[in-house]
């Protein structure tokens, strides 16, 4: 197993950490550059995490605002991306808690039955008659994958998203989720096993997942 902590020297060499240090000194353009660099990555990960595009954008804005407000205390102890996604994960967790509390109060929304959100199969059944087969196939697999992703717990999902889309190492994921590398290894192992169980039928029966 690799070392459990990112070295501070590596963090200090991170160009984005340098930009953040410039923002700390009052250079707004440096922060604008950071927002520009990370906006798509952050919104992308958050969209998969909260499964709501608009909420993901709002959350991303909140992340940048929080980072900017905390700029005076910023120290480059980790890569900037790790720092940013750690804050994003914390804010997303808070939001999930808030949404969970609201759901406890406001039961049975118009699209949700007693079992919660509608399953991907139901949505697909409703839309299948409206589009060409090829497009439908793509949307179907997206829905199935999204559905499989939603069965993971919060930490598993975040670890999967960071590893898949941010190509983060286990060390960086551990720093982001404030846990150990060993815990990340277990998280990802269980998450990928869950995904395998959910998605294997689609891989073996359909054409998806064949080697590109």
């Amino acid at each position: 197993m690799k070392p459990t902590r990112a070295e501070p020297t590596a963090a200090a060499r991170d160009p984005d950490a340098k930009l953040m240090l410039r923002a700390k000194q009052g250079e707004e353009a440096a922060f604008t550059q950071l927002v520009n660099s990370y906006q798509d990555r952050l919104v992308g990960v958050l969209t998969h995490l909260v499964q709501d595009r608009q909420a993901a954008e709002d959350l991303a804005q909140e992340v940048f605002l929080k980072i900017y407000k905390a700029r005076h205390g910023y120290e480059p102890t980790a890569k900037f991306s790790t720092y940013l996604f750690r804050i994003a994960n914390n804010l997303a967790s808070n939001r999930r808690r808030d949404v969970g509390r609201k759901r406890e109060v406001t039961l049975a929304g118009s699209d949700s039955g007693p079992m919660g959100a509608r399953p991907a199969e139901q949505i697909l059944a409703e839309t299948s008659g409206m589009m060409p087969a090829r497009q439908f196939a793509r949307i179907e697999i997206q829905a199935v994958v999204q559905d499989a992703l939603s069965t993971l717990n919060d930490n598993q999902r975040m670890a999967v998203l960071l590893h898949k889309f941010e190509e983060m190492s286990y060390i960086d994921i551990a720093a982001t989720l404030d846990t150990t590398v060993s815990a990340v290894k277990s998280l990802l192992s269980r998450a990928r096993e869950n995904l395998r169980v959910k998605l294997e039928p689609y891989v073996t029966q359909g054409t998806w997942g064949s080697q590109d």
Binding site: L149, L195, Q211
Partner: peptide, 9 residues
Amino acid sequence: RTWDLLGQL
């Protein structure tokens, strides 16, 4: 292969 499917998102 199931991991690769995430790329379809």
